[in-house]
């Protein structure tokens, strides 16, 4: 009896348990209809593979260079993490400057009604996946959710808290803790 087509397709891919392999092989040798089926599969694959992308090596180089340009920018930002040797007077001057700017900023923000403005509103649009936190977003992006469209509504203007952290992140954390 002929193995069914699904089994032949798996056989064609070399994905058959070794215990079944021999008997299927034996059968195919004597069965012309199974042989025909296999040659159909072969033809299908041949046609699909006949057109590889030309110059995939070239693309590889292009993309590698693009990625490295971006990485260089990132590593330049990391200069802040390196140790710097700063003469004491300069450091003192810098500290004084920093503290005064900081206090000025504090005074300015006190003048406003709310010292830390919150995101004006977070709207949840009808989407396939409910995303409320950054973690949800990560999970959704990495998951096998091929069919979703996500719309994240950002506040009208970028708002940062005192430490320079976008308040949107604060809002996300707040939303999660509720």
């Amino acid at each position: 009896m002929c193995p069914d087509k699904e089994v032949l397709s798996a056989y064609f891919d070399g994905e058959i348990e070794s215990s079944l392999m021999a008997s299927i092989k034996e059968h195919i040798e004597v069965c012309s209809s199974c042989r025909k089926e296999l040659s159909c599969l072969e033809e299908l694959r041949r046609v699909l593979l006949a057109e590889d992308i030309p110059g995939i090596e070239e693309s590889s180089v292009t993309v590698w260079q693009a990625i490295n340009r971006l990485r260089k920018v990132t590593s330049r930002e990391r200069i802040w993490q390196k140790q710097l040797v700063i003469p004491v007077p300069v450091a003192t001057a810098f500290m004084v400057l920093f503290v005064s700017v900081l206090s000025l900023f504090f005074v300015v923000s006190l003048k406003q009604d709310q010292p830390f403005r919150t995101v004006s509103k977070i709207e949840t649009l009808p989407v396939d996946v409910q995303i409320k936190t950054i973690e949800d977003l990560h999970r959704a992006i990495e998951g096998d959710t091929t069919a979703f469209e996500v719309t994240i509504l950002l506040p009208q203007e970028p708002i940062y808290d005192f430490s320079g952290k976008p308040t949107l992140l604060r809002a996300a954390e707040y939303e999660r803790s509720k």
């Binding site: 699904e6 397709s9 798996a10 891919d13 994905e15 599969l41 299908l44 096998d144």
Partner: peptide, 21 residues
Amino acid sequence: VLKISEGNVKVRVFRARNRLQ
């Protein structure tokens, strides 16, 4: 890659080929 079972892959590969043919 797709977070599905091996058996599921087998079935889908077969169905895809079958449809194409």
